[in-house]
């Protein structure tokens, strides 16, 4: 194996985060999650496992939900990133955030930003007609049944286990299944 380069190469990238263009010089090893949290002071995306096994770091990149922990920031040069802070702030809650509050869809709150970003991604994926493992007929249009919402939210672990309440909150925003 070749010797790795000494030190850590620095790269310059530009991200559009929550609608604002941000230039960053960073260690090439920096994950998107750490870039958001440690460099851009956007601490809403959480680090629960750092290995794509919990979903607490979920953000939307170019409209799609991903695990920010399993991405290098440099891979996203030029991308549009939406974090929980871009979805809504305390004095201006988005409907999903309002619904999570109304339904008590969280307890400790640590997985919550990821759950909400994931729910936002879910709603968009359903509009696109994307199927899930809960979709019976893969050729039929997608209907967001409760089983669909549960399956599609399964990349977000909530150890407080607010799952029933999270389903209710997403249902409030998604509207009835039929």
């Amino acid at each position: 194996m070749a010797t790795p380069p000494a030190g850590a190469p620095s790269v310059s990238i530009r991200l559009t985060v929550n609608g604002t263009s941000r230039a960053l010089d960073l260690d090439v090893r920096t994950t998107l999650l750490d870039a958001l949290r440690e460099r851009l002071n956007l601490k809403g995306a959480k680090k629960g496992c750092d290995h794509g096994q919990c979903g607490a770091c979920t953000v939307l990149v170019n409209g799609l939900r991903i695990n920010a922990c399993l991405s290098l920031a440099v891979m996203h040069d030029g991308d549009e990133v939406t974090t929980i802070e871009g979805i809504g702030l305390p004095d201006n809650l988005a409907p999903l955030q309002r619904a999570f509050l109304d339904r008590d869809a969280f307890q400790c709150g640590y997985c919550t930003p990821g759950q909400i970003c994931s729910a936002a991604g879910l709603l968009d994926e359903a509009v696109r007609g994307w199927p899930s493992a809960a979709t019976g007929d893969l050729t039929a249009p997608v209907t967001l049944t409760d089983a669909e919402i549960r399956e599609r939210m399964s990349g977000n672990i909530c150890r407080c286990s607010a799952y029933p309440q999270i389903l209710d909150a997403i249902r409030d925003v998604a509207g009835p299944a039929s």
Binding site: L42, I84, I87, P90, F100, D102, F106, G109, T112, P113
Partner: peptide, 15 residues
């Protein structure tokens, strides 16, 4: 509603 809920649903509660 949870007292600290607005902070938690916006990711602005500092852990």
């Amino acid at each position: 509603d949870r007292y600290e809920g607005p902070l938690k649903v916006t990711g602005t509660a500092p852990y």
